[in-house]
């Protein structure tokens, strides 16, 4: 049963990443990968809220598997993030590569902290 929660969540999260990436990348003509940046920050925010809720006992294990391991796990990606960073560096956009690497980590971490804080404000 646990596997089903993970798989169902991932079957929503992965296409959501694809659609978000498409929608975001079409809106601008820069080399900066805003699409992947967006899904990683949003996914970290949701997982932060979920982690805070779980600590407060407000999220069941099935919710954590579906929303956390499945949906947020598949919505966010490290492989695409690192590949895009490498390509930026190779194409001579070194500033964008560094900005993407440090910006993604900083923004996602900030989102995770904010998510946990929001959850604690609600459930604790």
């Amino acid at each position: 049963m646990n596997w089903l929660f993970v798989i169902t969540g991932a079957m929503i999260g992965a296409p959501l990443r694809y659609l978000t990436d498409r929608a975001v990348q079409r809106r601008h003509d820069t080399v900066f990968p805003w699409g992947t940046f967006t899904v990683n920050v949003v996914g970290s925010l949701i997982l932060g809220v979920l982690a805070g809720a779980a600590t407060a006992g407000a999220a069941s294990s099935s919710t954590q598997l579906f929303l956390g391991t499945g949906l947020c796990g598949a919505l966010t990606t490290y492989s695409t993030f690192s590949y895009e960073t490498l390509r930026l560096a190779e194409e001579g956009a070194g500033f964008y590569a560094v900005a993407n690497a440090l910006g993604s980590v900083a923004a996602s971490l900030g989102a995770a902290f904010a998510g946990v804080a929001v959850a604690e404000a609600i459930w604790l």
């Binding site: 990683n40 970290s44 956390g68 966010t76 695409t80």
Partner: peptide, 16 residues
């Protein structure tokens, strides 16, 4: 590969 790797768990594990 997108589903296998994760940025959200990475960020939240650091927070934890």
């Amino acid at each position: 590969l997108g589903g296998f790797t994760t940025f959200s768990t990475y960020a939240v594990d650091i927070e934890r």
